[in-house]
C-alpha cells in the first residue's frame, strides 16, 4: 500500500504529523516566498476497509489544510497538514521547498529533532501499553475436578 521510501515523501509526512507549535519553534523564521495557493482548510474523507482487508468504505472526514509556495529561486513547495492551522501548512510548504535546495543540510538536523520528538512520544505510549500486557489463565472448574 505504501509507496517506496522517498526522502520527500518522508519529510512531507513528518511535517503533516508534527504539532504546529513544535514546528514553529524549530523553524521560527521563514525565507521570502510567494503563495501559489493560499492556505486552505478542507476535509479529507478517511477510508477504512470492510473487515479490515476488504472493500473500501467511507469512515468519516478529517480536517486538513494545504498550501503551495514558491521561493525566490523558483523552487515550489507543497504542504498538507492535519488540522486547520494555516501557519502550519505554510511552514510545511516552505520546508518542502527549502529541502529541495542547498538549504537542505541546514534543515535536516532540525527535522531529525522533530522526528525524535515524535518517535519518543510513540515509544512512551508503547511502553505504557506494554506494562498493561496481560496473561489470562483459564481456571479448572470444580465439576471437572
Amino acid at each position: 500500500m505504501s509507496a517506496p521510501p522517498d526522502p520527500r515523501r518522508d519529510w512531507l509526512s513528518l511535517m503533516a504529523r508534527s504539532a504546529p507549535e513544535r514546528l514553529a519553534e524549530v523553524l521560527p523564521d521563514l525565507p521570502a516566498h510567494a503563495l501559489l495557493r493560499a492556505p486552505e482548510t478542507g476535509t479529507v474523507m478517511v477510508q477504512g476497509r470492510v473487515s479490515a482487508t476488504g472493500a473500501p468504505f467511507n469512515l468519516g472526514e478529517m480536517t486538513v489544510t494545504r498550501c503551495a509556495i514558491r521561493l525566490d529561486c523558483g523552487t515550489v513547495g507543497h504542504g498538507h497538514v492535519q488540522g486547520r492551522s494555516h501557519a502550519h501548512a505554510r511552514r510545511a510548504a516552505v520546508v518542502d521547498a527549502l529541502m529541495q535546495t542547498d538549504e537542505a543540510p541546514r534543515l535536516t538536523p532540525l527535522l531529525e529533532g522533530l522526528r525524535t520528538t515524535a518517535q519518543a512520544a510513540r515509544d512512551l505510549r508503547a511502553a505504557k501499553a506494554a506494562a498493561t500486557r496481560v496473561e489470562f489463565f483459564t481456571l479448572q472448574r470444580g465439576e471437572d475436578a
Binding site: 500500500m1 486552505e40 482548510t41 478542507g42 476535509t43 479529507v44 474523507m45 478517511v46 477510508q47 477504512g48 476497509r49 479490515a52 482487508t53 473500501p56 467511507n58 469512515l59 472526514e61 480536517t63 486538513v64 494545504r66
Partner: peptide
Amino acid sequence: TLPRLGASVPLDTG
C-alpha cells in the same frame, strides 16, 4: 462549509 480536498488511501489497521 469546508471543501472536500480528497479521499485517503484506505487505512491499514493492521
